[in-house]
């Protein structure tokens, strides 16, 4: 697409404009990433690998993977249901429902964490009920999962709604008129056309889920080896003056998140 009349730059103003933009991106955005790599690797490969042998760091990695997996599965299922509901059915209050789904995007992670603590802490009847039945939520791992679900709730839904609202519902109606069930219409007609957007939303959701800090920090109880995710463990290690280990975990998390984000761009551009 050459919409704005894109050009190959000659020398002069074009090259200067590109150079300035490149410099801006490299200095402002690439430098912090380079810093992470440098700090992680400055003492050689030994201390870097030792980070992964630490029990608490291993537990943090495992918890992060499990919490992200559950949150992504939950939000992917919700995203499909919500996007279908909002784009294929008619009902009043659609805009309000859409706004509610988007709300977690603009809520401060700390406010989200506080809200969840007030809902599931032992002070609330609900939290007390769960704790009484042997499944404490606040200061325990289920709280981490719930906080992760909250902060990444809209990502899959948004991605799908943006696409599906353009598609309308004629194809599904046609399929159903030809004898398909609603499920078959979704399975055979809708899903193939939204697959790459779905993958893109899942990748985005996963990247955010693994990195969440503020909300899980509030609800975690900060038990090392039990309720500390990688993000929280990074701040523990930083406080413990274990800079190499902190940056090694930071680099690992960053590498995964960046890879997921780039994969998502590729999925979206296809």
């Amino acid at each position: 697409m050459t919409a704005t009349g894109t050009r190959r730059p000659g020398f002069g103003r074009g090259a200067a404009a590109i150079g300035l933009a490149g410099l801006l991106l490299i200095v402002f955005i690439l430098a912090p990433v380079a810093q992470i790599v440098y700090e992680a690797g400055r003492s050689g490969i030994g201390p870097l690998l030792a980070t992964f042998a630490d029990r608490e760091s291993q537990a943090a990695i495992w918890l992060t993977i499990v919490a992200a997996a559950i949150a992504v599965a939950f939000n992917a299922a919700f995203g499909l249901i919500a996007a279908w509901t909002l784009t294929k059915y008619r009902f009043p209050g659609k805009a309000a429902l859409q706004a509610l789904i988007d709300l977690p995007l603009t809520v401060s992670p700390v406010v989200a964490g506080l809200a969840l603590l007030l809902t599931f802490g032992t002070r609330s009847p609900l939290g007390a009920w769960f704790a009484h039945h042997g499944v404490p939520i606040a200061f325990a791992r289920p709280g981490i999962v719930i906080a992760t679900i909250f902060v990444t709730f809209p990502y899959v839904a948004r991605e799908l709604i943006a696409l599906m609202s353009d598609q309308g519902r004629e194809l599904e109606e046609a399929a159903i008129a030809l004898g398909a069930s609603t499920w078959q219409a979704f399975r055979r007609v809708t899903f193939p056309s939204i697959r790459s957007a779905f993958v893109s939303g899942v990748l985005l959701c996963n990247a955010r889920a693994m990195g969440e800090f503020g909300a899980v920090a509030v609800i975690s109880g900060r038990i090392r080896g039990l309720t500390d995710t990688v993000s929280l463990q990074i701040s523990n290690l930083y406080d413990d003056a274990q800079i190499v280990a902190a940056f090694t975990l930071a680099g690992t998390l960053a590498a995964i998140a960046i890879a997921l984000t780039f994969a998502r761009r590729l999925a979206a551009h296809r």
Partner: peptide, 22 residues
């Protein structure tokens, strides 16, 4: 036996235990 640790300000930690930190 595996011992897990939680660290923080002493008063905040005490209150966390009161609030259900196990």
């Amino acid at each position: 036996v595996t011992v897990n640790q939680s660290h923080g300000g002493s008063g905040a930690q005490a209150r966390a235990v009161i609030e259900g930190l196990d």
